[in-house]
Design a protein around this nucleic acid. Sequence first.
DNA 1: ATGGTGGCATCGCCA
Length: 262
Amino acid sequence: MPFTLATWNINSVRLRAGLVGHLLTEEAPDVLCLQECKSPVDKIPAETFADLGYPHLIARGQKGYNGVAILSRLPIEDLGHTDWCEMGDARHIAGRLENGVVIHNFYVPAGGDVPDPEQNPKFAHKLNFVAEMRDHFAAERPEKAILVGDLNIAPREDDVWSHKQLLKVVSHTPVETDHLAQAQEAGGWVDVTRKDIPEGQLYSWWSYRSPNWDSSDKGRRLDHVWASRDLAPAAHSSRILRAARGWEKPSDHAPVFATFDV
DNA sequence: ATGGTGGCATCGCCA
């Protein structure tokens, strides 16, 4: 049975519940993973989504910051979360569909502005977080699993508008892309988006601070869909819904889609 | 070299 999954950093699920509804109605993924919900779980407008055919919701939340959720048409079992870096942040949730597929939804710390862990504790936190992901998935190799989310790292040269100009910009520094590659390798994860779209510039985020985001196109691919090695051959038809970045009062991220035949 | 925008725990912090 094929199923389609999407991941989207929504930047406030309450403010943008209408946009979420629009995506569910127009694109109808079976599963939608959200990050930066910025809401306690009991204040997520779950009924709105249930009325649109998504009665299943698992989430972790906190007031104002972070927050991850999985909306699903299909029943999903809450597998809990890991408290990465023991910060108590709502940055991860895992669930299992009835077909046995496990979904990990991550919101990796952005890391602040200065790409030096000695000078900037937020950058140190980001590197530690990704190192813990590496250790976690090295200890327990994922099978029949999908990892999605805003990983806040654009790994490839063609995942940013200018490789050269972003080498010292947080999200594309070598130490970050090395850390991400190690986490990916430790779990045997396959980058599904790049498996399906191997060539060319590809972005999922455009800063709010750039007024002409579309024409200047200074984007980065910060949002990812990975599959465990056994599941990767089932993946196809990835796409990024760039148009969503141009919707009324948009998130600064566009949703990333992948379809799996499982 | 700087500042640009947006959300919220809103006058400072996060992205």
